[in-house]
Write a protein that binds this DNA or RNA. Sequence first.
DNA 1: TTTTACGTACAGTTTTTTCTGAACAAACTT
DNA 2: AAGTTTGTTCAGAAAAAACTGTACGTAAAA
Lengths: 186, 186
Amino acid sequence: MLNDPIYEDELEKLEEARNCFITEIAKNMHLYNITASTGRLYGTVFFAEKPMTLDEMSEALGMSKTSMSTGIRSLLDADMVERVWEKGIRKDLYKTEDDWYKSFSNVFIKRWRNATKLNVEAIEETKVQLRRLKEESPYEGIREKAEADLDKLAKAEEYYAWLTDVVNLFETGEIFNIVPKRKGDK
Amino acid sequence: MLNDPIYEDELEKLEEARNCFITEIAKNMHLYNITASTGRLYGTVFFAEKPMTLDEMSEALGMSKTSMSTGIRSLLDADMVERVWEKGIRKDLYKTEDDWYKSFSNVFIKRWRNATKLNVEAIEETKVQLRRLKEESPYEGIREKAEADLDKLAKAEEYYAWLTDVVNLFETGEIFNIVPKRKGDK
DNA sequence: TTTTACGTACAGTTTTTTCTGAACAAACTT
DNA sequence: AAGTTTGTTCAGAAAAAACTGTACGTAAAA
C-alpha cells in the first residue's frame, strides 16, 4: 500500500482537502497574534491523527525544527495547543486544544485584560501630572488645556471599566449562560 | 507669550503628561491591527484641542504626510477617527471618535465576523472534498481519515456558530444591556 | 482657463520580523 | 561514565513591513 500509486493519489486528495481549511485558518490567525506560518502549523497538528513531535511537524511543513519550536510555543501561549504524554515516547508530543471556546476565551481575556491594565495605569500617571498643571500652572491657557485633557481621560476610564466587565464575562464563563455553546445544531 | 520661556516650559510639561498616555496606548494598539506609529497618531489627534489636518499631524509627529495619510486611513477603517467638515477649510480635518464603546465594538465585529465568514466558507469547501473521499475512496484507511476530519470540522462549525452569536451580541448592542456602559462611576 | 493646494499611488530605502543552521545544555540510554 | 537524543538559544540571512519623497490626479481658487 505504501507504494501503491492510487493510494498515494487518494492521500494526496486528502491532503488537498485539509489544505483548503489550513490555508484559510492560517490567514486569520493574526487575530490571535499568531503568524500565518504558525497558523499552518496549527492546522497541520489539528488534522493529525495523533499527537505530533517537533520532528514530524518539521517534516510535514518543510520548515526548520527551530521554527517548529518557537511556533509551538506561541500556540501554547495562546492555549491553542497542549503537550501530551505518551508512554515510551521521549519526544515532546503536541495536540490541538479541542475546546475552541476555551482557546478563544483565553486569548480574548489575556489580551484585553493586559491592555486594559497597562492603559489604566498610564491614565493614572498622566492624570497626576495633569492635575498638577491644572492646579499650579500660572497660565490660564495651560490650566484649561489640562482640564480638558482630564475630562477626556475620565471618559476613557469609563470605557475601560466597561471593558473590564466584558472581559470578566468571559473569564467567569458567564458568557456561556448568555450565549450558550452550540451542540450539534446548525 | 509665544516667546515666554516659562510658558514654553509649562507647555512642555503638558506634552510630557500627554505623551505618557500616548506611548502606552500606542503599544497596545496592535490589538486593533494598528501599528505603534499609527497609535501615536491616534493619541496626538485624541489630545488635540481641535480637529487636525494631515499637515499638522505630520508636523506634530515629525513624520511624512504620506504616513499620516495611510495612518489616518487605518484609523478610519477601525472607526477610531472620523472626518469632520469645517466651513472655509479646504484641508481634510480629523478628530477621534469619542465613543470608545463604538470603536471597540466596530473593530471587534468587523474582525471576527470577517474571520468567521471566511473560515466557515473554507470548512464548507473542505467538507465537500472530504465527503467525496469518505464515500468514494476504495481504501478503508482513507475513508476513515476523511470521516475523522469531518468530525473535527463539525466541532469547529459549532464553535463558529457560537462566535457568530457573540458577535451579534455586540452588533445589536444587546451587550450594553448585559454589561451596561459606565457613566461617571469608578 | 491657468494656477495652486491637497491627498494618495508608487518605487525605493530603511527598519523590523521571521526563518535557519550551528552550537549548546539537559536528560535519557547504554 | 560516555554517548545519544532532544529542545532551545543565538547570530546571521532572508523576507516582510513601515516609511519617505517624488510624481500625479483632482478639485478649489484666481
